[in-house]
Design a protein around this nucleic acid. Sequence first.
DNA 1: ACTTCAATCAATAGATTACTTGATTGTAAA
DNA 2: TTTACAATCAAGTAATCTATTGATTGAAGT
Lengths: 220, 220
Amino acid sequence: MSMGPKQAILAEFAGVARALGHAHRLELLEHLGQGERGVDALAARVGLSLANASQHLQQLRRAGLVANRRDGKFIYYRLADDGVTDLLTALRRQSERNLAEVDRIRRGYFADRDSFEPVSREDLLERVASGLVTVLDVRPQDEFGQGHLPGAVNIPLGELQDRLAELDPDSEVIAYCRGAYCVFAFEAVAALRAQGRPARRLVDGFPEWKAAGLPVATSF
Amino acid sequence: MSMGPKQAILAEFAGVARALGHAHRLELLEHLGQGERGVDALAARVGLSLANASQHLQQLRRAGLVANRRDGKFIYYRLADDGVTDLLTALRRQSERNLAEVDRIRRGYFADRDSFEPVSREDLLERVASGLVTVLDVRPQDEFGQGHLPGAVNIPLGELQDRLAELDPDSEVIAYCRGAYCVFAFEAVAALRAQGRPARRLVDGFPEWKAAGLPVATSF
DNA sequence: ACTTCAATCAATAGATTACTTGATTGTAAA
DNA sequence: TTTACAATCAAGTAATCTATTGATTGAAGT
């Protein structure tokens, strides 16, 4: 069991990597990227039992990827810092580069939805500055409230059909949601274009925006 | 067993993360960062049985992190691309930020060795341009041959005491080796300073240099 | 053909991980 | 105190992962 200094350090790194090595934990991290949440809410959104979610969250905590605080009866988890989002982005980059599998899945499910070029963060900033676009946040209201792009309008995807009137029909809509693999933004763009309205999606989501150090607004 | 598109993609990402989730595999990747190597050589350096090393390497290959080619009886592995080094760097960054454990280990083993400020890549380039320093590569000769910093002198750590005459006693030495956790560079700096010679170490190693897109020289 | 040797494959035992169930802890309110 | 509830803990089973052993494949050389 004796280990050199290097082996000991590499074992620590490996521990962090292993904490990322489960789809459920990655999904928990994706949700935590939106903002602080209680265990129960997380479990419900990811579709895990409470005990199971709690255990996954504790693993993430042991790896230093998330932190938590108690408020009354509730325990709220959050990402340990913005570096976590960077690590997740690096993981996604490398995975996409080499895994034909990812591409195959994307093509299969997201089909033509991807055919309209996504908008980069820089493009979005430019267009917002010149007042040409409406930025649309299609996440649920509570996630919007915890943090969103400045000037964004919040219409959760399920309400989009009923609230089309709230969107200026003459300006292009740029939709975003949780991240690069969140389907909400795809769906929103498809729905808007079906109405003959110009719409595109932001290339990734809120956590990446925040991690890039760009301004964030909150409500409530 | 049915999975949405997101779950399927996250499962792929998790697979890549799990491939990084073992100290032996991280060490294999560190060695592969120096350049292409045969299975036997890797197994010997990391201290694994041949079969075990082979299986770890295949796991890395399945995750798309390394590639291999056959040449006669030998099979040579290499990093799939420079992005792998970036991902490893991101993993190290995040791990260091949050794990007191890493710091504790570092302090315990590397002690005062760290007390002389390491040199950044930019600093090194500047000093080389003005001819003020000797760049010293203390890795084994074969690793040096596969790629090294331009203008670097190769004296493996074990031979340093006997070959001090080869180093200009008036110019500062900047030593480097495999990476941020390779002890060779620490040892070399300690040995040189014990002789009263000015010496510091590069903040990280050859793979990071190469991944940063800086020029690389080869011999043989 | 036969031998040699690098590397992989196959099978196994032991360790670790994931998820469930039911009990326990900690806080707030009745 | 008692009750209620969020979250954790504990225990057990099924599944997965690691490392060893010995057999097998593939490319050279005799």
